[in-house]
Simulated scan of single mutants.
Amino acid sequence: MTETRRVVCWRHGQTEWNAEKRFQGQTDIALNERGLAQARRAAPLLARLRPDAVVSSDLSRAATTAQVLGSETGLAVTLDKGLRERFGGEWEGLTTAEIRERWPEEDARMEPPGGEDISAVGERVQDAIERGLALVPEDGLLVVVGHGAALRAGINRMLGLPPDRRQVLGPLGNCSWSLLGPLRAGGWRLLEHNAASLPEKRTLSDDR
């Protein structure tokens, strides 16, 4: 049977640190009221896609977002530490302005001192997605709930983009998602990115 599984990569809702433009990393910050409202708006849309499994980062902002979808669909949420956000080292808790002032060169390269290598982040996120895919049938849909930088790193790796092209994909907004589907020749392609409306149904024949 031809592989037709799809993956939705869904970023968590807003937190106070998001609103304050602070680097969160692996600091466990909860959703604020707006973030919870964002999750409650998005969950019914994603539920209409009839997901087969929901896998989430164990950090509370992602896990809470995922649980809203779990409640909407009746699916249990599986937590996976491999989906955690990139560890930000000395940048965690600092605002964008503070980071740019203190570490202008590192900021330009997006390399936080003492932080996690972005290639390693992409590898662990891809591994977590592969674990999640084992939970869905060959024609199923997996929803992965995580964090902006980590999900982009994982998507980049799944698409085979080299490290120097990692900025090709724009950021994911709070409670927005990307949709990945299979290539005929193997591997993955990006079907939707930074979406906040219902992804369109697509088939392999759309390549023709």
Rank of each mutant, 00 (worst) to 15 (best):
S178D: 09
G35D: 03
R165K: 02
G181A: 13
R184N: 00
L183M: 10
L46Q: 06
V125Y: 12
A42G: 09
R11M: 03
R166Q: 11
T4I: 03
G114K: 14
S176T: 15
T78Q: 11
L204C: 02
Q67P: 07
T2N: 06
F23L: 05
S178E: 05
G187L: 08
V168H: 11
L45V: 15
Q26A: 12
A43C: 08
T2E: 12
H12W: 09
F87L: 04
E130F: 11
G187F: 11
H193M: 02
E98S: 11
E130G: 01
D139C: 03
Q38F: 09
N194C: 08
V168D: 11
A150P: 05
G186T: 03
R6G: 13
R131D: 03
L46I: 15
G13C: 09
R41M: 09
A128K: 10
D80P: 07
T64C: 01
T96N: 05
I129A: 06
T73Q: 00
L159I: 09
N194V: 02
N194G: 07
E72N: 01
T65G: 12
R124S: 09
V8Y: 05
A185P: 04
T73L: 08
R11S: 02
L204D: 04
Q126M: 14
A19N: 06
P163M: 00
P199M: 05
L180D: 12
V144G: 02
L151S: 00
G173E: 14
R152C: 04
R5E: 00
D117Q: 14
R86W: 00
R86Y: 00
T78G: 02
R48D: 10
L141P: 05
R86P: 00
K21A: 14
T64D: 12
P51V: 06
G181D: 11
R184M: 02
S197K: 11
T78P: 00
H147I: 01
R189P: 06
V54L: 12
N18C: 03
R50V: 04
P163R: 14
N32Q: 07
S60T: 12
L191A: 14
G122A: 10
F87C: 02
V145H: 06
I129G: 06
G140M: 04
K81S: 13
R22I: 03
A19I: 00
M110I: 09
E33P: 06
